[in-house]
């Protein structure tokens, strides 16, 4: 390993793992984590609007740790959806975590990294941590990547548990217009960042069709609207992608 990567790799041998953990913690100070914090402040306000306890909100944020899935979960909770349909909707909404995890793991692992450590770190993967990992890890020596990401990811989660609690508590004391603004942060943040991340025809079509079909299915089939939106709009988007590719 070290002969292929040259001097950077040998440099790293001098540094203990805790140095890289601290570097990961310091990596929090940048723009994407700041945006995520404001989105989680907004999610806290949204969760309060839905009628959740602070405890539900914090546990949900730590356990799910993926805002899109949490929004789907909140949507199902406020609609009174049964647990089976909720599992289906949340599972469908978070399929993107599979390709994301699959693309980060080869960057992170060494031959010695225990699988349990990778499973633990995989829990941190969501849009923000994924973007930061893809951006920062390749420049680090391989042995530094696991401790760096562990420091970064743990800090990011803890920071956002504070953010979500702050948003939840703030929503009660600020004027209703500001509370509405906080709850509005989540849909706006996702709409703009999803449109920015949509590179393929399939992604763009899925975004546009989902925006149209979501409200339509909400009116037509409120019980399973999320699943229908995903399946119908997603399949149509895939067909558009196939059709464009064939031409």
């Amino acid at each position: 390993m070290s002969d292929r990567h040259g001097s950077v790799e040998e440099d790293a041998v001098e540094r203990p793992a805790r140095y890289w953990v601290l570097r990961g913690i310091a990596g929090i100070v940048s723009v994407p984590p700041l945006i995520l914090v404001s989105a989680f402040i907004g999610f806290g306000a949204l969760a309060r609007d839905t009628g959740l306890d602070l405890g539900h909100t914090v546990v949900m944020t730590g356990m799910v740790w993926a805002l899109p899935a949490q929004i789907v979960l909140i949507g199902a909770i406020s609609a009174g959806t049964g647990i089976a349909a909720t599992i289906a909707a949340v599972t469908l909404s978070s399929v993107r975590l599979l390709p994301m995890t699959m693309s980060v793991m080869p960057l992170m692992r060494t031959e010695k990294t225990p699988r349990a450590v990778l499973l633990w770190l995989s829990h941190y993967i969501a849009v923000t941590a994924w973007v930061e990992a893809m951006r920062k890890l390749p420049a680090l020596p391989r042995s530094a990547r696991v401790p760096y990401f562990a420091g970064f990811g743990t800090t990011l989660i803890l920071l956002n548990l504070c953010a979500v609690s702050t948003g939840y508590l703030m929503a009660a004391v600020v004027p209703p217009q500001i509370a509405a603004g906080l709850a509005f942060l989540t849909p706006v943040y996702f709409l703009i960042s999803l449109s920015a991340a949509a590179q393929l025809t399939a992604d763009r079509a899925a975004l546009a069709l989902g925006l149209v079909f979501g409200p339509v299915f909400h009116l037509v089939a409120p019980e399973f609207d999320l699943m229908w939106t995903g399946l119908v709009a997603g399949t149509l988007a895939f067909l558009v992608h196939r059709w464009r590719r064939r031409r």
């Binding site: 899109p68 789907v72 909707a89 909404s93 849909p187 999803l194 899925a206 399949t235 988007a237």
Partner: peptide, 13 residues
Amino acid sequence: RSVATALVAGVIA
């Protein structure tokens, strides 16, 4: 991924 994106877009809308 299309299904996942459409689902999240539906929730946002």
